[in-house]
Each structure stands twice: as structure tokens, then as C-alpha cells.
């Protein structure tokens, strides 16, 4: 199955003959999200209100945006452990720049810092052929260190009103983080599905040797993939700092695992080559719904951890079954 250029065709074929397999492959997580939402709606009157839905989506936005970038990385068979640290560094940088300039350039620079961090990850991974898990484990540590050095360990307070809007404002009735989340997904959906670059990402993940032999320039492609993850982390970091009214150097630890979990829950194979970006959005939604609903139902905190942990293990288990299924 891996490395077959026909791989990219499965999307259209699957849609054509709409059978149970196809639905489970593409839509499994959507169904799970719907069922669990229905459960929560029945069990708690506050769940299915407009304000709670907006609240839940806004909380999910950060993880969802990280998962969008992580999808590209995992599709190539890689992993990016540094996204949480990039969130912290980009947030801190954005707030830092906002002391000297208007909100928009400050936010863009913050995102750019994220992109730069991702670019370095990409170059190191693609050129040195070191395992991505090692490269990004390293950058996860040094980027966090830089965030601490920049701030001296203290949070930087954000005072710029239009910057704060990025996290706390609304576009009509919809919180801005949700709007940005949807924009990010729209853009990356198109890139992944309708561009040569997107198709190359799948092929590299399927079999990078074969991809190289068919003439794909693997190194620049990989560099871009990690840069995209960096951009997403940068955007998430800027939004988060606006939400928290401060650049927090210690924020975001563990976010990489949430993002990876969202991607895998969304049906992307950790081995690369298989998956969709829309799945990741629903994977993030699933985790957000779970957190929100469990708290609304007053499930004791320690139990919430147990439930979430089990869900993540089960997600990996499903991933295994999917891979075996595809082979057989």
C-alpha cells in the first residue's frame, strides 16, 4: 500500500462508492464526536447552548491549529515535539514586539518566530537525516530555554488592546480564535488536497526513497512541512498570549502530545502517507468536547485524567488496526 502514487486517488474513489468501510475510514471520528456530543447534551442542559459551544470551540482552537500543522508532519512519517515550546516562544515574542510596534506587525513577527523555529527543525531533519523525534526533542528544550531567557522567567504583560482582541474579540457572534482556526484549516486543506506540494507530502510519507527516485525534491519539501508546523504553532502562540493577556514562557508544555493525539484520533497514520486534515480538526474537537463535557458533568478531576488517558491509548490502538487493515 505504501508509496503507491494511486494513494491520493482513494479520497475520490471512497466518496464514489459510499460503503461502511469508507465511512469508518474517513468519518469515524466525526461519528464519534456526534455521538459523544449527543450524550453530553442529554446529560447536561448547559452543554448544547450557543455560549458553551463557542466556549468549547474557542478552547479547542489552539489544539486544532497545532494539529493542522502536525498533520503535515505526521503525513510525512515525522513527528514534531517542539510545538508546545514554539507556542511559548512565539507568544512571548509577539507580546515583546507589541511593546515597540502596532499589534498587527507584532503578531506577524511572533508568528514568524514560530515559522523560523519550524524552518530550523525542517532543515535539520531533512538534511542531517536525524530522526525527527530527536531533532524536535532538542528544539523543544532549547526553544523553551530561549523563551525563559527572553523573559527572565517572568510572564510579559500584554497591554495592546487590538492584540488582545485576537484572543478575546468576536467577529459577529463568533470568537476570533474560532475564525482563525477555520481559516487555517481552509488554507491547509486546499494546499494538501489540490497542490503538487500536498500530493508530494503523501508520497514522502508513503515511502521517501521512492518519492526521491520519482524526482520529488524531498529536502525542500520536508523543510516546508516543518515550517508549516512552526507557522501553526506561531499562530497558536500569538492567540494564546492574547487569551492569557501575557506572554507566558512556561505555557504549552504537553501541547505537542495533545496535537499528536488529535491528529491520530483524526485517522492519520503515525507511519505516514495516510490521513486527512479535516480528520485532525475533528480529532481536536473530540478532545475539546471531552474536556468540556467532563467538567460540565462534574466528573472528578482525577477521573477525567483516567478517561482522557484511556481514550488516547485507544486512539493509537485504532491506528494500528487501520494500518493492519490497509495492508491486508
Amino acid at each position: 500500500m505504501n508509496g503507491n502514487p494511486a494513494m491520493t486517488e482513494t479520497g475520490r474513489e471512497g466518496a464514489a462508492r459510499l460503503n461502511w468501510r469508507g465511512i469508518m475510514d474517513k468519518m469515524g471520528i466525526v461519528i464519534v464526536v456526534l455521538i459523544i456530543s449527543a450524550l453530553f447534551a442529554v446529560m447536561d442542559e448547559n452543554f448544547l447552548t450557543w455560549s458553551n459551544m463557542m466556549n468549547m470551540l474557542r478552547q479547542t482552537a489552539i489544539n486544532a491549529i497545532l494539529a493542522a500543522g502536525m498533520t503535515f508532519v505526521i503525513l510525512t512519517g515525522g513527528i514534531d515535539l517542539s510545538v508546545g515550546a514554539i507556542v511559548a516562544l512565539a507568544g512571548v515574542s509577539g507580546v515583546y514586539f507589541s511593546q515597540w510596534m502596532p499589534a498587527l506587525p507584532a503578531m506577524l513577527l511572533g508568528t514568524l518566530v514560530g515559522a523560523a523555529a519550524g524552518y530550523v527543525n525542517g532543515v535539520l531533519t531533512a538534511k542531517t537525516k536525524l530522526p525527527a523525534i530527536i531533532v524536535t526533542l532538542g528544539s523543544m528544550t532549547y526553544l523553551r530555554g530561549i523563551a525563559y531567557v527572553v523573559t527572565g522567567g517572568y510572564p510579559l504583560i500584554l497591554n495592546d488592546g487590538s492584540f488582545i482582541k485576537m484572543g478575546q474579540g468576536y467577529l459577529g457572534p463568533v470568537p476570533i480564535p474560532i475564525v482563525i482556526m477555520l481559516l487555517v484549516y481552509a488554507v491547509f486543506f486546499v494546499i494538501l488536497k489540490y497542490t503538487v506540494f500536498g500530493r508530494n507530502v503523501y508520497m514522502i510519507g508513503g515511502n521517501s526513497e521512492a518519492a526521491f527516485l520519482t524526482g520529488i525534491r524531498v529536502v525542500p519539501r520536508m523543510t516546508w512541512v516543518y515550517t508549516i508546523s512552526g507557522i501553526c504553532s506561531g499562530i497558536a502562540g500569538v492567540i494564546l498570549s492574547a487569551r492569557l493577556l501575557s506572554g507566558q514562557p512556561n505555557v504549552g508544555s504537553g501541547y505537542e502530545l495533545d496535537a499528536i493525539a488529535a491528529v491520530v484520533l483524526g485517522g492519520t497514520s503515525l507511519a505516514g502517507g495516510m490521513g486527512t486534515i479535516v480528520g485532525s480538526l475533528f480529532g481536536a474537537l473530540f478532545m475539546g468536547t471531552l474536556s468540556n463535557g467532563l467538567t460540565l458533568l462534574s466528573v472528578p478531576y482525577y477521573w477525567q485524567l483516567i478517561i482522557k488517558g484511556i481514550v488516547i491509548v485507544l486512539a493509537i490502538y485504532i491506528d494500528r488496526l487501520r494500518q493492519r487493515g490497509a495492508r491486508g
Partner: peptide, 28 residues
């Protein structure tokens, strides 16, 4: 193999439902 995947999905849901019922049930 496909069957076992469906089975796993069903398992997730069953687990979640029972846990929610167990945890949230008393005062719900």
C-alpha cells in the same frame, strides 16, 4: 480486520458511556 476496527470504535464508546454514567450519575 475491518470488523475489529469497528469493534474498537464501539469499545471506545461503550467505555466512555459507562464511565460517564458511573462518574456523573450520582448527583446527575
Amino acid at each position: 480486520m475491518r470488523k475489529s476496527k469497528f469493534y474498537a470504535m464501539a469499545l471506545v464508546l461503550a467505555l466512555l458511556t459507562s464511565m460517564l454514567a458511573a462518574c456523573g450519575g450520582n448527583k446527575e
